[in-house]
Amino acid sequence: MFGNTWLYKGLIHMCDIIQIRRELHQIPEVGMDLPKTLKYIINHLEGLKNIDYKVIEGKAVVAKTKHHKNNRFLAFRSDMDALPVEELNDISYKSIHPGIMHACGHDAHMAILLCFAEYINSLEDPEIGVMFIFQPGEEGNAGAKWLIDHGIFKEYVPERIFALHMFPSLRTGVVASRPGPLFIGTEEFHLKLHGTGGHAGFPENSIDLIEIFVNIFSDSRREAIKIANGDKYIFFFGKTITNGRNNVFPSILNTEGTIRAYDNTLMKALENNLLKYCKLYANNNFELSFSTPYLPVVNDSDSFSIIKKASADNKILLKEIEPLRIGEDFSYYLSKTRGAMFLLGCAGNGIFNRKLHSQNFEIDESSLKIGLNLFITIYDLCI
């Protein structure tokens, strides 16, 4: 599709893409402040004469083509942050930061997007412009929302946006996606109940926070089934602790959990349901807070069709899967423009059973070239 010249350049990119990924793998950083990662990205982009870049508040980099034939723009996104996980892999490019690891493949995402930027930079006069988004804080900080709030689409709203995610449950040479919901919407909640405490022998002088919690837990979960009316959701309490003892009523009870759904309206209804039963059983003696929600990732059907065609053109098997019950803040971009995301298989060449977020997560690096070629083909199909 790209001719012999690109096939040759593709091999060169393959060498570079592995090196880039390994160098980034060694310097993982968590959250919104990623100084080493940011410096690495900037150093790479500075060598691309046809691409401008802007650093956003010292936390993110947004690059775009300087020249192209018309006012059309596409966007491609990579997350940059790592996880607070101690790496156990015995590899030459192991994380040099104790207790921090690229255990979700964001190092691979960055390597693919940087090499894609190299390819676009090599075009004399690209048909349409490209925005390259290097985003912090995907792992729980809603970095995509932060970037949008800081106006990355104020000047240019791309006509479509695409992203990929490494997925070790799929073998190398396979990708997965679907039209419509791909990732579930998620948010976390924290509930704190206040009581008077007291001796178990004098229950009349105390407020039984355990009983209050059990009532909230049971009734809110029972009501959630009715609210969902057959739609898929998760309403889960995962941790509950008190300051009580075997013979002491607690004066404080803390509990936390998650609400997940493929529909924003249902997520809000489940929030209100929990609040309703807190008010009913705890009166005003409670504090209830919710994290910034990750909206459901809903792939635009036309953008999904482009990914499907790109996969076929590269002789890559695309599996249409059921929606996943994990969250992704790519959804915030999709609230502003059309687009789609796909999962890139990375299990092979002896790299198997390396689960996301695990201490031994690793990828088959031959999958990197597949991701790069898919981005290039997606771009070509959008012209």
Rank of each mutant, 00 (worst) to 15 (best):
M1T: 12
N4D: 14
L7F: 14
I18S: 06
I20R: 10
E23F: 07
D33V: 14
T37L: 00
I42G: 07
G47N: 14
N50K: 13
Y53W: 11
V55K: 10
I56N: 02
A60E: 05
V61W: 05
K69Y: 07
S78F: 05
S78H: 01
P84R: 11
E86Q: 14
D90Q: 15
G99E: 02
C104E: 03
H106Q: 03
A108C: 12
C115M: 12
C115D: 13
E118R: 03
E118Q: 08
L123I: 14
E127V: 13
I128T: 13
M131E: 11
M131N: 09
F132R: 00
F132S: 03
E138W: 07
G140M: 04
A142Y: 00
G143F: 00
G143T: 01
I148L: 15
H150M: 04
H150Q: 02
H150F: 02
I152Y: 01
I152F: 01
E155N: 15
Y156G: 03
R160W: 03
F162L: 03
A163K: 00
G173K: 03
V174Q: 06
P181T: 10
L182N: 03
E187K: 14
T196M: 13
G201T: 09
G201F: 06
L209S: 01
F213T: 06
I216T: 04
S218T: 15
D219S: 14
K226Y: 13
I227A: 01
G230Q: 01
G230S: 03
K232M: 13
K232F: 11
K232T: 15
I234H: 10
F235D: 07
F236M: 12
I241P: 04
V248G: 09
S251F: 07
N254V: 08
T255G: 01
T255V: 08
I259T: 06
R260M: 08
C278F: 07
C278W: 06
L280M: 15
Y281A: 09
Y281M: 12
A282C: 09
N285T: 11
N285S: 14
F286L: 05
F286R: 04
S289I: 13
S289G: 07
L295F: 10
V297W: 03
V298R: 03
N299C: 09
N299V: 07
K309E: 15
A310L: 00
A310R: 02
A310S: 05
D313R: 14
K315E: 14
E320C: 12
I326W: 13
G327N: 08
E328L: 10
D329N: 08
S331W: 04
Y332E: 09
Y333G: 01
G339P: 06
M341H: 13
M341K: 09
N353L: 08
L356C: 00
H357V: 10
E362H: 12
E365M: 10
S366A: 12
I370N: 05
G371Y: 04
L374P: 02
C382R: 07
